[in-house]
Design a protein around this nucleic acid. Structure first.
Length: 742
DNA sequence: GAGTTTGAAACT
DNA sequence: CAGTTTCAAACTC
């Protein structure tokens, strides 16, 4: 058994994990089921994940010495940690982990593309066959031969897996799948630590395919068809993406799930993550990939409402998946229908515990107690309902629906109950410190409303006591606009005041026809074409160069109305773009997401990068490299860190030098002023200098007398000069007028 | 500091 | 929702 070290993850190209969407064939039933997995020439080209996907480094290569046909049925691959993945024999199992005893064969035709992508070509398109591109580890068991491809890498480094023509139409029924059991198991390892959809292929598995799962991390993702939803139900592949996370070596588990069907494998590599990918039918087009795409696409293992006899309803749950915030998400659905996974609550929810899962896009709700050890997981904004099966048993897979977790939550990082508390502070400071910030006397006590970081009091208009009780319910960044409700304060985060500028300018310079709510018509405007640092900082202009400035107390009304007009146009205008993620999420994220296309999200053009946050599912960026495991990003971060360290060191050195100079000056000044004569010019008088020179001349003469060579003469003179200096120094502390005697 | 690049926002 | 335009910030030289 070859085990791919997690380090390979780093080495693999980024594109591997860029798996926002995959192409899955949802074609009508093909003529050739090819259930046996016969190899057929496939012209299916690997579907690039994105434009530059093909530039995959030669990190992994798959080769098989078996004939193509044989390779089709018997994938012989070995994966090593070195730069070469060479096949052994057709019977060779390539297992990264103690693979599950999955006997369901999956006919795949792996090939190594010119760009060294691991490609499993689907022999022929069939309804049951889906094109799968899976970065990560793929375990395939064709006819008892187990095949595991470790596509360790990162986003965008795609391993293209194209399933051979299976012939088992997912929607055609499960029996067909059983008749021609073609199963593959895809395990993706490595890549981003965050939730990222991973390629999923058609997974047709028997219910018995449940492995012992001890993965510490797992994210389950459902691939949902973007463009087309078959009435028969799209085949959905769920791949657990093992994430190379901090060298974890726990077994990774793989769960390949078609609706109601779950395949699970395990591999001792890294904690997996299950990722949902969106599918674009028949799409060979380039796919813009961003990390953490589409949390709403997350689809989990269907576990609820299982049909007891349904072979497609097996649930494998990775264990320890909660580690480091990784999460297995099990979709609770009626698995009887191979069609679209629909969340259904077959069992009433138990009291749950809301926890924050590391993935920024998940809010996990754990049932405090359920008879089936099902942890319910809620994904905000998702119409799916997820559960996580947790069991204390660590036994091997028995084929039962359930989990094989080994204290998954124990190894997980502390789950923080998301209280979504609004942190605001309302300090009371002396009124005189506010200056212009307080245009009107607030109260006799001079209470000033401030909020936590970056929030400024812009426009207090009413006494604080009226609003203070409400502030505790305001989220950070809340703007209390004048006239909004009974609140007369305008609290703006400084970062977003800039957004107000332009609008404010337009409003104030309302000759442009901007429909101000109040119909203000004035030529006055905020300074500098609306661009005023004072205003941006949420402050009134003071001692700046702006002209016709309305950003002052005198124009309080106009200013407030400008703000209000801006809010009328865009109520979200002052909400922080960069802030906490969704409720329950701990990571910061961009509320809208960037839309970078050329910068790779690694320049400050990218708002996410600028804010030093990872691109998230909300981003629409192309060729994004701003994800956690991006080598480019790491490099930049390292450079930035190094630069910062340099700056700090230089600053510290300058500070120290300045301090030393200052200290020296401080220490020497008294001596100078007191006539102590400790400074050189105080005791190296003209007489001393002359005497020294005489001594040196005398030494030179002596050297000439004894006919010493020039070098020796110079040495003698220098030695004499040294002696003179010593005498000067020694005399300096004794007398004001040191005497030099040769 | 000028010119170019880039992406967000506005607009259609 | 997609395409285009505008514009200011970021970037390069």
């Amino acid at each position: 058994m070859d085990v791919v070290s997690p380090e390979l993850n780093i080495l693999l190209p980024d594109e591997i994990m860029d798996t926002e969407a995959i192409v899955m064939d949802d074609d009508p039933p093909a003529e050739s089921p090819a259930a046996s997995g016969q190899s057929q020439p496939s012209d299916d080209a690997p579907i690039p994940m994105e434009t530059d996907v093909l530039a995959v480094p030669e990190i992994v290569s798959l080769c098989s010495d078996a004939p193509p046909t044989q390779r089709t049925q018997a994938l012989t691959t070995s994966i090593t940690t070195d730069s070469t993945l060479c096949s052994t024999t057709s019977a060779t199992q390539l297992l990264l982990t103690p693979s599950i005893a999955s006997s369901s064969p999956l006919t795949l035709r792996p090939k190594l593309s010119a760009n060294h992508q691991i490609i499993l070509n689907k022999v022929a398109s069939s309804p049951g066959a889906d094109t799968t591109r899976s970065p990560g580890t793929t375990t395939i068991t064709p006819g008892g031969q187990k095949f595991m491809v470790t596509a360790i890498g990162k986003s965008g480094q795609s391993i293209v897996l194209q399933l051979p023509h299976t012939g088992s139409k997912p929607g055609s029924g499960q029996g067909e799948a059983k008749a021609n059991p073609q199963h593959f198991k895809v395990l993706t390892i490595g890549g981003r630590t965050d939730l990222k959809p991973v390629m999923v292929g058609q997974a047709v598995s028997s219910a018995s395919q449940i492995s012992t799962l001890q993965a510490q991390q797992l994210k389950t993702v459902q691939i949902a068809k973007k463009t087309q939803v078959s009435s028969a139900g799209p085949i959905k592949f769920i791949i657990t993406k093992a994430v190379n996370n901090k060298g974890l070596t726990a077994q990774t588990s793989v769960s390949n799930v078609i609706t109601g069907r779950v395949l699970s494998t395990s591999s001792p590599v890294t904690p997996p993550r299950t990722i949902t990918l969106s599918e674009t039918l028949s799409s060979n087009s380039k796919i813009a990939i961003s990390p953490l795409k589409s949390p709403s696409k997350l689809t989990m293992v269907s576990v609820a409402s299982q049909v007891p006899n349904s072979p497609q309803k097996s649930v494998s749950l990775p264990l320890n998946m909660a580690h480091l915030g990784q999460q297995i998400l099990v979709q609770q659905s009626t698995a009887t229908s191979p069609a679209k996974v629909v969340s259904s609550h077959s069992t009433p929810m138990k009291p749950v515990q809301t926890v924050t899962v590391g993935g920024p896009q998940f809010k996990t709700i754990f049932p405090l107690s359920t008879s089936s050890n099902v942890q319910q997981i809620q994904v905000p904004g998702s119409r799916f309902h997820y559960v996580r099966l947790v069991t204390a048993t660590t036994g091997s897979s028995t084929g039962q629906a359930g989990s094989h977790c080994t204290n998954s939550s124990m190894t997980a990082k502390p789950m923080v109950v998301n209280t979504a508390q609004v942190r605001m502070s309302v300090p009371i400071i002396p009124a005189q410190t506010m200056k212009q910030v307080v245009p009107k006397p607030l109260t006799s006590s001079g209470q000033v409303l401030t909020t936590q970081t970056q929030q400024r009091l812009i426009m207090p208009a009413t006494p604080l006591p009226q609003i203070q009780p409400n502030l505790t319910n305001l989220p950070p960044g809340t703007m209390l606009a004048p006239g909004s409700g009974n609140m007369g304060y305008t609290v703006l985060p400084a970062h977003y005041v800039t957004q107000l500028q332009q609008s404010a300018y337009v409003t104030l310079a309302s000759s442009s026809g901007f429909p101000t709510p109040t119909g203000i018509q004035t030529q006055a405007r905020l300074p500098l074409n609306g661009y005023c640092d004072c205003f941006a900082n949420g402050e009134f202009c003071q001692s700046c160069n702006c002209t016709n400035c309305f950003n002052n107390l005198e124009h309080e009304t106009e200013r407030a109305k400008a703000i209000k007009a801006c809010l009328d146009r865009n109520p979200e205008a002052f909400k922080p773009k960069i802030g906490k993620g969704k409720e329950g999420e701990s990571d910061r994220r961009h509320s809208k997401g960037c839309n970078c296309k050329r910068s790779g999200c690694l320049k400050n053009y990218c708002e996410c990068y600028e804010a030093k946050i990872m691109c998230s599912s909300t981003c629409k960026c192309v060729g994004c490299k701003n994800f956690e495991e991006s080598p480019e990003r790491k490099t930049l971060m390292h450079l930035a860190d190094a630069a910062e360290v340099r700056v700090q060191q230089q600053t510290a050195a300058k500070t120290k030098l300045s301090s030393q100079i200052s200290d020296l000056f401080t220490r020497t000044t008294p001596a100078i002023t007191s006539g102590g004569g400790r400074m050189p010019f105080t005791f190296v008088t003209k007489e001393v200098a002359e005497a020294t020179c005489e001594c040196l001349l005398e030494q030179a003469e002596q050297a000439e007398l004894i006919q010493q060579p020039q070098a020796t003469a110079e040495r003698m003179i220098l030695e004499e000069f040294g002696r003179c200096l010593m005498r000067i120094i020694s005399s300096a502390g004794k007398t004001d007028c040191p005497s030099i005697n040769c």
